[in-house]
Amino acid sequence: MKITKNEVIHVADLSRLDLDEESIDKFAGQIANILEYVEKLGHADTEGVAPTSHAIFLSNAFREDGEISHLDRDTAIANAPEKEDGSFVVPRVI
């Protein structure tokens, strides 16, 4: 599986990234090298091996259902690039 320039553009699109022509060429080469290296995983015998997504055994983390304090609204949105009346402002959607 060799990643093509078009695939890089497609995946960048899914990732909400714009790449210029130069970055596309550069990334396509570098990422192809990395993926080619990663192909070696195919040689590992994983027949019947369960996947691991978390290295420590833990069951669900429950807590008592109680009241706890949270950031107030103004503090929580203080870092927003644009805000109004306690809300985030975004460019027009519809």
Binding site: M1, I3, E7, V8, V11, A12, L14, S15, L17, L19, S23, F27, Q30, I31, I34, L35, V38, L41, G42, A44, T46, V49, A50, P51, T52, S53, A55
Partner: peptide, 29 residues
């Protein structure tokens, strides 16, 4: 950006099992 693109590619439909799934099994090993 490179890692976001690699990650998104490896998780995308058709590639998930070959990359993320396989790597997670190798992690068990």
């Amino acid at each position: 950006k490179r890692r976001i693109i690699i990650g998104t590619y490896c998780l995308s439909a058709g590639y998930y099992d070959a990359y993320y799934g396989k790597a997670s099994q190798v992690r068990t090993l």
